[in-house]
Amino acid sequence: MRRGGAETETDDPTEDYDDTHADGEAVTEGAGARRARLRRGRRDSAWTRALESRRVRIGVAAGVVVALAVALVAYFSPLLSVRTVEVEGISAITDQQVQEALRVPEGRSMLRLDTDAMAQRVSELPKARSVRVQRVFPSTVRVTVEERTPVLYFEAPDGAHLIDSDSVEFAIEPAPIGVPKLVTEHPGGYDAVTRAAVTVMAAVPPALRLEVGQIAARSVSDIRLELRDGKTVLWGGATDSERKAAVVVPLLGQPGEVFDISSPNLVTVK
């Protein structure tokens, strides 16, 4: 096209153009034919995308079905049933007691076990302080038990009652060697004086704990430790026990028989 004596090219896509074959023959494609070719290309591309999208959806659906089938088999099939029970942390409690409390359903899949209910049943054993039940795939149940440990005992007509650090009476049987005897008017896990004595015993330094033969508790504020060598520690109440624990061991190195630390800032020895 000439404008002002010069040739210019047009950008109009509808203008005819020449296409030259390898043999040099020029072929002219009209704008209508070109648009038809472009439309066919777009239709072919859309169909290809739709086909690929359909294949993806079918693949995802098939994967979901397979996963669901596997989950159902695992949930209901006895293939994942319990074959082994491991019990850890017991000495006073027997393995048989734990097994009977667990009540593991025979042939039931591990996925269907109610481990919380199983742990609750085992924790109802008097000597069990805490219980944890775990699944260990493919076929093991692991039970971890923390037993109650006596810190005091008191004598009653039916025998020695053991009390742990939570002030729980958990057994009536001979006290282990080294556990101090509690002497108080109304001993028991719900008695305030008994609970105060348990708190005091928990505060006693480990080096002194084995030397305590008896705890005499007249009230929550009048608690004394009677040592196996004949000495007496007037502890007082459970308050300020950390400070009392810090001064009692050095004080016992001094000559005397009665060591009053009921007021840890003003200790006396008699």
Rank of each mutant, 00 (worst) to 15 (best):
S81F: 11
A101D: 03
R112H: 09
S91W: 12
S109K: 03
T94K: 01
R108G: 08
A67F: 13
T84C: 09
D114E: 07
V70C: 08
T94Q: 04
V73C: 04
D116G: 09
V82E: 08
A71G: 12
R108Q: 15
Q96K: 07
V70N: 03
D114Q: 12
E100Q: 14
L79D: 10
S109E: 08
P78H: 00
V98F: 06
Q97K: 04
R103Y: 11
A117F: 14
V85L: 13
A67E: 07
L79I: 15
A101C: 02
V82R: 05
T115C: 07
A74C: 14
D116L: 09
S109T: 05
E100H: 11
F76E: 02
R83V: 05
T94F: 12
V87M: 03
S77R: 07
Q96T: 07
I93N: 00
A71W: 10
G89E: 12
E106P: 05
Q97L: 06
A101E: 06
S91A: 13
V70E: 11
L113A: 06
V70F: 13
T84A: 10
Q96C: 04
S109F: 05
A71M: 13
D95F: 12
A71F: 14
I93G: 01
L102V: 04
F76I: 00
D116C: 04
A67P: 02
D114T: 00
L80P: 01
I90H: 06
E100N: 11
P105S: 02
Q99D: 12
A101N: 00
G107Q: 07
Q99L: 15
M110W: 01
S91V: 07
S81L: 09
A101W: 03
A92W: 10
P105H: 01
M110I: 11
V104W: 02
T115V: 15
D114F: 09
D95T: 13
V82H: 08
R83E: 13
L111E: 00
G89D: 10
P78Y: 02
Q97E: 15
S81Y: 08
A69F: 11
L80M: 09
A101K: 01
I93Q: 03
E100Y: 12
S91P: 01
L113H: 10
D116R: 14
A74S: 04
A117M: 06
Y75R: 13
G89W: 06
A69M: 14
I93H: 00
V70D: 03
I90V: 12
T84R: 15
D116V: 08
P105C: 05
E88C: 01
V98M: 05
A74I: 10
G107T: 07
A71D: 03
